[in-house]
């Protein structure tokens, strides 16, 4: 907690709120995007620009930017920026939010802040020139519980029908992403990936069962909670890959969990998997359903 102007403030509350806001933009119509940009120019004392709106990432990337190069270089961003730079990014808006809640800002500034929020929520990338403003609208963002870009069913950043593909925060070309999430990638292809982050994720999707069959391995230890299977394959740290294996009672099939190669027993593997050491506990389930 910090204190501003006599008000107690929890910084984490504002960090969480504004990250969520920045990644969950309000979908805006073309008219709204245009109005927002024109307000921005007017507020900076500039003439009304033409607004070109892109709703697809690929269209934006493939646009003939060379033809607008000169005007981009002559961008009026410096003049626009002078008036908006204090507000432009979400972290600045987060500070403004704190100063609003603590009554540091007056009502006029608060109303202005609301307008800047609308501008930002409708666009993700914008190129401001004298006469034209090129806007790529904000995409739909998909993240996992850890906050990393992640989706196994669609682009993690999606504009219309196109987007960018991620798994656990790691970027993939669409074709490779499809072969991983659809599990059509072979063990050989997965372990041949040069990018270590991509390889680690691809191997996770290939799964312990297939890796065990294709790469060979041995049961290193077993107890009443399962088995540790050591593969004849080294990870990025030059340790043999080790999986915990046990029967899933709800599906009546084996589950595999990649585990720390340093653990000695399946019980220790599960203690770590459930972070039970935080509570000074070891894995001793009473009931599994």
């Amino acid at each position: 907690m910090i204190e501003i102007n006599g008000h107690k403030i929890d910084p984490q509350h504002y960090i969480d709120k504004w990250i969520k806001w920045a990644l969950e933009p309000t979908l805006a119509t073309d008219n709204e995007v245009t109005e927002n940009v024109q307000w921005l120019y007017k507020n900076a004392g500039l003439k009304k620009p033409k607004v070109v709106i892109f709703r697809e990432w690929e269209e934006f990337m493939k646009y003939d930017w060379a033809s607008v190069g000169d005007s981009v270089r002559d961008s009026v961003w410096t003049s626009v920026g002078a008036s908006v730079e204090a507000w432009y990014w979400a972290d600045d808006l987060a500070f403004a939010d704190v100063f609003t809640d603590t009554k540091v800002l007056d009502e006029k500034k608060v109303l202005e802040l609301e307008k800047y929020k609308k501008v930002l929520s409708s666009q993700r990338l914008a190129i401001y020139t004298d006469d034209v403003c090129y806007v790529l609208v904000a995409p739909v963002i998909r993240r996992n519980e850890e906050g990393k870009l992640n989706s196994e069913s669609s682009p993690s950043c999606q504009w219309g029908k196109t987007g960018l593909y991620y798994l656990n925060g790691v970027s993939f070309e669409k074709g490779l992403w499809e072969s991983i999430v659809n599990k059509t990638i072979s063990t050989k292809e997965a372990i041949s990936l040069e990018n270590q982050e991509q390889k680690t994720i691809a191997m996770r999707f290939v799964g312990g069962d297939k890796l065990f069959c294709d790469l060979g391995g041995k049961v290193r230890s077993k107890d009443k909670y399962g088995e540790l299977i050591e593969l004849d394959y080294k990870d990025v740290n030059n340790d043999n890959v080790v999986y915990y294996r046990s029967l899933d009672p709800s599906k009546n099939e084996y589950i595999y969990l990649l585990t720390d190669p340093k653990v000695e027993t399946p019980q220790e593997a599960m203690t770590k998997a459930y972070k039970l050491q935080v509570f000074n506990l070891t894995y001793k389930p009473s009931l599994r359903t």
């Binding site: 029967l247 709800s250 459930y274 509570f279 506990l281 389930p285 009473s286 009931l287 599994r288 359903t289």
Partner: peptide, 21 residues
């Protein structure tokens, strides 16, 4: 499909891959 694993610490239960401690 349900299979129960009885025994162990009575304060430590699991529903699928979620612990209930």
């Amino acid at each position: 499909k349900v299979k129960k694993y009885i025994g162990g610490d009575k304060n430590q239960n699991y529903q699928g891959d979620v612990s209930v401690i």
